[in-house]
C-alpha cells in the first residue's frame, strides 16, 4: 500500500482549517495544519508536504510571500501550492481575475468561498490520487 501523501493546510481561520482537514482526512490524506505564514514555513521545513493549501490574507506573513518563498527555493519549489483566494461570481467588488491568479507562482487556486468538493478534486488532480 502506498504511503499517504501529506497536505499542509494554512489559514488564519481555525474552523476552516478544521473543516478542510477533516475532508482531506476522509479522503485518506495525511494532514498538517498551520495558522499563519511563519508557522507554515516552519511546518514546510520540518516535514516537507507534497501539497500546500494556502490562504492569502494571513497575519505575520501573507500567502503571497509564503508562495514566493516556496517557489523560489530549490529545495521546496516542487511542493504544489494551491492558493485560497477571493475570486468568484458571488464576489462583486473585487477586480481580481483569473488571469491575475495565474500570474503568481502558485500551481493552482480556488476561489473563496471555497467549494470543498472542488478543492478535493483539485488536490486529487495534482497529487494524482
Amino acid at each position: 500500500m502506498s504511503e499517504k501523501q501529506l497536505v499542509l493546510v494554512v489559514d488564519d481561520d481555525p474552523d476552516l482549517v478544521e473543516a478542510v482537514s477533516m475532508k482531506l482526512e476522509s479522503e485518506k490524506f495525511r494532514v498538517n495544519k498551520a495558522y499563519d505564514g511563519v508557522e507554515a514555513m516552519e511546518k514546510i521545513k520540518e516535514e516537507r508536504p507534497a501539497l500546500v493549501i494556502l490562504d492569502v490574507m494571513m497575519p505575520r506573513k501573507n500567502g503571497w510571500v509564503v508562495c514566493d518563498e516556496i517557489k523560489k527555493s530549490d529545495q521546496y519549489k516542487g511542493i504544489i501550492v494551491i492558493l485560497l483566494t477571493a475570486v468568484a461570481d458571488a464576489v462583486q467588488t473585487t477586480s481580481y481575475t483569473h488571469h491575475d491568479g495565474k500570474t503568481t507562482l502558485a500551481d493552482d487556486y480556488i476561489p473563496k468561498p471555497i467549494d470543498l468538493d472542488k478543492l478535493m478534486e483539485i488536490v486529487r488532480d495534482h497529487l494524482g490520487s
Partner: peptide, 24 residues
C-alpha cells in the same frame, strides 16, 4: 498586502448570495 496585490484587496469583497453559503 497591497505590495503583493496591486488591485483591490480580497477583504473588500462583498458576498452577494441568494442563500448564505455554508462549507459543511
Amino acid at each position: 498586502f497591497i505590495k503583493y496585490f496591486k488591485k483591490e484587496p480580497e477583504t473588500a469583497a462583498a458576498y452577494v448570495e441568494e442563500k448564505i453559503k455554508t462549507y459543511a
